[in-house]
């Protein structure tokens, strides 16, 4: 294969990764933006989404599309419920203090991981894609499902954007993000907004995981990479800025896809991680974020 098509392949792979990353990071960014909580268990919500997708689709026999669609609905709902319960039982009682919530979500991370290991096991298991004909490009065939993942992610990001900027729910969320106390004074049920946002953030991660699981198998340790990458994306995009998060996800997904094709993936991670640490040190508002208040 010549260099051009090779680069195209790397770009497509990078875009698939960016699509999943954008959704996962959006969830993390939303939770941080509105609640000022750094959710270290976010990667485990992703992993839980993938594992539940396998479980749901294994219950349904017949056409794989039915099982997949069912998983796409059921898995985020369960993950959202788990997030909601942990928010009510733990985070709320900690008054959302940043340090305490980090410690608590680390605890949550270990609990979810260990429970999945106990009940699901250490194997990696695939979910059959709902459809998988190959689209013939002049140089190579490409999976139609991967293109569908990109399209689905774009739709979901647009939907999230619409909800945040054009609906009452979004208005309430933005008001809480801007100033929780004032919002409370104006009758916004801040407490319920927090619960909803935390569940929504986890559900976004779960949807991303269901989308990726036909490409990458479900495994109990799969949560760490999305967590670190989401951190990277959210930080580069500016903590709590949605537009920045999406732009950064595309940037990181693409560059990670392309660098990993041409160089060692470990080296790519080393470079990306140190770059992010330095961005956070020298430009804490992120590359695209505005100055914080």
């Amino acid at each position: 294969m010549a260099f051009g098509p090779y680069l195209l392949l790397a770009t497509l792979e990078g875009l698939v990764m960016a699509a999943v990353l954008a959704l996962t990071a959006l969830g993390l960014s939303l939770v941080f933006g509105v609640m000022r909580v750094v959710n270290v268990a976010h990667g485990e919500f992703f992993m839980l989404g993938a594992v539940l997708a396998w479980w749901v689709s294994s219950l349904v026999s017949g056409n794989p599309a039915i099982g997949f669609l069912l998983a796409l609905i059921v898995s985020p709902l369960i993950v959202g419920a788990v997030a909601l319960v942990s928010e009510r039982l733990v985070l709320r009682r900690l008054d959302y203090k940043p340090e305490a919530t980090i410690v608590a979500t680390i605890g949550l991370l270990y609990i979810i991981q260990q429970l999945v290991l106990t009940f699901y096991g250490p194997e990696a298991r695939p979910v059959v894609a709902p459809f998988d004909f190959r689209i013939r490009l002049p140089w190579f065939g490409y999976s139609s499902y991967k293109l569908a993942v990109i399209a689905a992610s774009i739709l979901l990001v647009l939907a999230t954007w619409f909800v945040l900027t054009r609906t009452k729910i979004g208005l309430v969320m933005r008001a809480t993000q801007y100033d929780g106390e004032i919002a409370q004074a104006f009758g916004v049920p801040v407490d319920r907004v927090y619960a909803g946002v935390f569940a929504l953030g986890a559900m976004l991660a779960a949807v991303a995981a269901v989308l990726i699981v036909p490409i990458q198998q479900a495994h109990y340790l799969m949560g760490l990479d999305p967590l670190l990458l989401s951190f990277i994306v959210v930080i580069i995009g500016g903590l709590g800025s949605l537009r920045g998060t999406v732009v950064a996800a595309v940037l990181i997904g693409l560059s990670d896809g392309i660098i990993s094709v041409f160089f060692s993936p470990t080296l790519a991670k080393i470079i990306a991680t140190s770059f992010v640490a330095l961005v956070l040190v020298f430009r804490p508002q992120g590359l695209f974020g505005a100055e914080t208040r």
């Binding site: 940043p98 340090e99 951190f231 930080i235 060692s264 080393i270 956070l280 040190v281 804490p284």
Partner: peptide, 28 residues
């Protein structure tokens, strides 16, 4: 010298990131 330029949550994430870099270097 680098990480102390940040405070609070940013300090936690920066130290986490640097430690991850160290870990990856031992693998590299």
């Amino acid at each position: 010298f680098l990480a102390l330029r940040t405070t609070g949550v940013a300090f936690m994430i920066v130290t986490l990131m640097f430690a991850q870099v160290f870990y990856l270097i031992t693998l590299f």
